[in-house]
């Protein structure tokens, strides 16, 4: 038995809106799809103690993250009647206002696509070993923590 190699989800730098548009376009040939659900994570310019976040530098334990993402993907496919799922997460420096996460689920009907998208986002935030260093405008930093 051959084990399928987990799909890569990481992209160096921000996720371009053109990449997202192309990804949507590629589904036009899959005419059994009736609904897509998309979640986009954007870097927020939080103000913490009077200092503004200018960018987040993301790092990951990539091998572990890809294995965990593979499990999430299999669980979500087992639970919902999905046609497909695509997940991309940025690594490196992502400026405030740029996109760092792109989750895209498709199904015959909206409910499965919407629920699967939400569950995937919640699980990946809780289960993937990814870290974000929030860099302030004055070059100091703090480490982001998911709530």
């Amino acid at each position: 038995m051959t084990e399928k190699k987990p799909k890569n989800i990481f992209i160096q730098g921000p996720i371009a809106s053109s990449f997202i548009a192309d990804s949507i376009q590629k589904h036009s040939s899959k005419t059994d799809i009736g609904g897509h659900s998309i979640f986009l994570g954007q870097v927020r310019a939080d103000i913490i103690d009077g200092k503004k976040v200018s960018f987040i530098e993301y790092t990951s334990y990539e091998e572990m993250a890809l294995e965990k993402m593979h499990i999430i993907r299999e669980d979500v496919f087992a639970k919902y009647p999905l046609t497909c799922m695509h997940v991309y997460h940025s690594l490196g420096k992502i400026a405030a206002g740029e996109i760092c996460l792109f989750v895209f689920t498709s199904s015959a009907h909206r409910k499965a696509a919407i629920d699967a998208c939400e569950e995937t986002v919640e699980r990946l935030k809780a289960e993937l070993p990814i870290w974000g260093k929030e860099m302030f405008e004055d070059d100091t930093h703090q480490w982001k923590e998911n709530k």
């Binding site: 994570g41 993301y58 990951s60 334990y61 572990m64 993250a65 997460h89 760092c100 996460l101 986002v121 990946l124 935030k125 809780a126 289960e127 993937l128 070993p129 990814i130 870290w131 974000g132 480490w143 982001k144 923590e145 998911n146």
Partner: peptide, 10 residues
């Protein structure tokens, strides 16, 4: 072996 601080993906 890896030491993992709290996650912050997304």
């Amino acid at each position: 072996v890896a030491l993992l601080p709290p996650y912050a993906g997304g």
